[in-house]
Amino acid sequence: MKLVHVFDAYCGWSHGFSATLREVVSRHPSLPVEVVSGGLFTGPRRVPIREFGHVQGANAKIAELTGAQFGEAYEQLIADGAFVMDSEAAARGVAALRRSAPGRAAELATAVQDAFYVDGLSLSEPATYRKLAQQAGLDANAVVAAFEAPQAQAAAEADFRYAAELGVTGFPTLLAVDGDRATALARGHATADDVDRRLASLTA
């Protein structure tokens, strides 16, 4: 069995789930964790953030429910409403980091979200992945090269397809995948205890 975390780096609820994901991973060190980007803001949804009028209100609710932080630098980044969330670029970045350290995919995915929601960094910029790679002790040049390579585009598209094949329609979704059977452990907000209860019922 493995865990599959389907998220979007530009999804506030996915950011809110980060602490739960980190706790689940720490409780189950022998359980492989795969991270898949879902592609929330692609195609016609790749528009200035002002077109999503509910962002601030949603973030306040996410913070209240999950304790997730939304940093001052993030608030400044989105203040004029012009910032464009591009999930394809973010998925390329996640794929580049994941390629450098496959066993640390969950940790790196949450770091990507912190880069945006806490530090106010664009997930479309190579410099963001250089910084993340350096912080994680990875080869920063290799990560940036992977982010800019055509293979990253293919990896992002493969992630979007896989998320659709798994039947995921909302982010985040944490699945237990055993062979060809996928069972949802969490959708949206859940605690590590919630996830553990559902996991226990699968292995009972």
Rank of each mutant, 00 (worst) to 15 (best):
E157V: 01
D178F: 04
L166S: 10
P172F: 05
A186C: 12
G179A: 09
F147T: 07
A152E: 00
A182C: 10
E148K: 11
A156C: 05
G170C: 06
Y162G: 03
F171A: 06
A186M: 13
D159H: 13
D180C: 06
A186G: 12
E165Y: 04
V168Y: 07
H189L: 11
Y162K: 11
T183F: 03
V177P: 00
L174G: 00
V177H: 02
T169M: 13
E157P: 06
D178H: 12
A156T: 05
D178N: 14
Q153M: 12
V168C: 10
E157H: 14
G170R: 10
A152D: 02
V168S: 12
T173L: 05
D159V: 11
P172N: 05
R181E: 13
F160Q: 08
F171W: 14
D178P: 02
Q153V: 15
R161P: 07
A154V: 12
R161T: 15
T173A: 09
A163N: 10
F171S: 03
T183E: 15
V177I: 13
G179L: 09
Q153W: 01
A149P: 07
F171L: 01
T169G: 13
D178C: 04
E165N: 04
G179E: 11
H189I: 14
F171P: 07
F147C: 05
D180Q: 13
E165K: 14
A163T: 09
F147L: 14
V168M: 11
A163G: 08
L174M: 11
A149F: 03
E165M: 11
A154S: 13
E148W: 00
F160M: 07
L175V: 09
A158Q: 11
A176E: 02
R161V: 15
T173W: 06
A176N: 09
G167Y: 05
F171V: 02
L175S: 04
F171D: 06
R187H: 11
A163Q: 09
D159Y: 01
V168D: 06
A158M: 05
A184G: 09
H189C: 02
R187M: 08
P172L: 11
L166M: 15
A156G: 01
E157Y: 00
A158Y: 00
Q151V: 14
R181L: 12
P172A: 09
F160T: 09
A155C: 08
L185Q: 06
A184D: 06
P172E: 06
F171Y: 15
R181Y: 03
T183I: 13
T183G: 04
F160R: 02
H189E: 09
V177C: 09
F171M: 12
G188V: 00
E157F: 00
V177D: 11
A184F: 03
G179S: 10
A149G: 08
E165C: 03
P172C: 07
A163K: 00
A176H: 12
R187E: 15
A155L: 08
